[in-house]
Computed example of a mutant assay.
Amino acid sequence: MQDDIETQITGLSDKQKAVFAGLVCERLLPQYEAFCKAANWGSPAVYERGLEILYNSSLGEFHRAEAAALLEKLELVQPGLTDFTTPLTAYALDACIALEEALQFLIDKQESHLHNCATAATDSVEAFVQEYRSLSSDRRDAHAIVAADAFMQAELARQHRLLDALLALPDFDSADIHALRRLNGAGGIIDAAWLR
């Protein structure tokens, strides 16, 4: 299913790609916020500003300079895996990687950034499933278990649903983006309560 997502991303216009990246990152924000609260460190405001830049860019000219400036700020509030003891650190890092890739896309329009953004979300879900199911990485059936898990199925279905909706909207306005954000759903793509 991940290959299908990459194929669908290829069919999007640059502005549709910016919206898709914003939608992916928006659902990763709760895990970054949970980390910030647990670690008493970070800046959800920087992350939220990244979402604004993505959505605003999709409605007009890409905000390359703003994206570049925000990347510098994001780097300062992106956690290092060894710097914090909370198990939420890796999930916050995934969220930051997704936003970093999305902002990089605004700067250079390289499609690989969109694939990396979407993959950061599925990587986060994969790590979560392995953790809450206590799966050993050397289990032969670990990949199949993760792929069949409800959290992974929900994330892949969400990305497909959003891509299908975007492909049906060659032209869109702020009302369409609002409708896409409703379609995107609310809350995180993992259950951070399991990780405390």
Rank of each mutant, 00 (worst) to 15 (best):
A157L: 08
T119A: 13
E126L: 08
A92G: 10
D164N: 14
K109N: 13
A165N: 08
V129D: 00
I145F: 03
A150H: 10
Y132N: 07
A175T: 08
V125G: 01
R140Y: 12
N116R: 13
G185D: 06
E126Q: 12
H113G: 04
L167H: 11
L114P: 00
D83Q: 13
H143E: 14
C96G: 06
L156N: 10
A168M: 10
P79F: 02
C117Q: 06
R182W: 06
I97N: 15
L114D: 03
R158W: 02
V146F: 08
L166R: 07
L156C: 09
L103V: 05
P79L: 06
K109R: 15
Q159F: 04
F128S: 09
S124A: 13
T122A: 12
R182K: 14
H143R: 14
L114F: 02
S134K: 15
D176T: 05
Q153R: 15
R182L: 15
A186T: 13
G187F: 09
Q159Y: 03
V77N: 02
K109I: 00
A186M: 10
A90P: 00
E131M: 10
A165E: 11
A147W: 05
A90I: 13
A90S: 13
Q159A: 04
Q153F: 02
A179K: 14
I97F: 15
L76K: 15
T85G: 15
L76V: 01
C96M: 09
P79A: 08
R161V: 00
A148H: 07
A168P: 00
A150F: 10
A120Q: 05
D138P: 00
C96N: 07
A154R: 14
L135M: 04
N184C: 14
L106C: 11
L103A: 08
F128R: 03
M152E: 06
R140H: 11
S174V: 09
A154G: 04
E101F: 09
F172Q: 03
E101L: 02
V146M: 08
A121K: 08
C96E: 02
A179W: 03
R158K: 11
L180K: 08
S112L: 12
T86N: 06
L167V: 00
A95P: 04
T86D: 09
V77R: 05
L156F: 10
R133H: 12
A90N: 08
S124D: 01
E100T: 10
R181K: 14
Q159E: 11
D94L: 01
M152D: 02
R140L: 14
I177P: 01
L106H: 03
C117R: 03
P87C: 01
A144Q: 14
K109T: 12
L106K: 02
V146H: 09
E111T: 11
F84D: 03
S137D: 11
S137T: 11
D141C: 01
A175Y: 10
V77I: 13
C117G: 03
Q130M: 15
Q104M: 12
G80P: 00
D108E: 12
R133S: 07
L156R: 15
A157Y: 04
D141S: 10
Y132I: 13
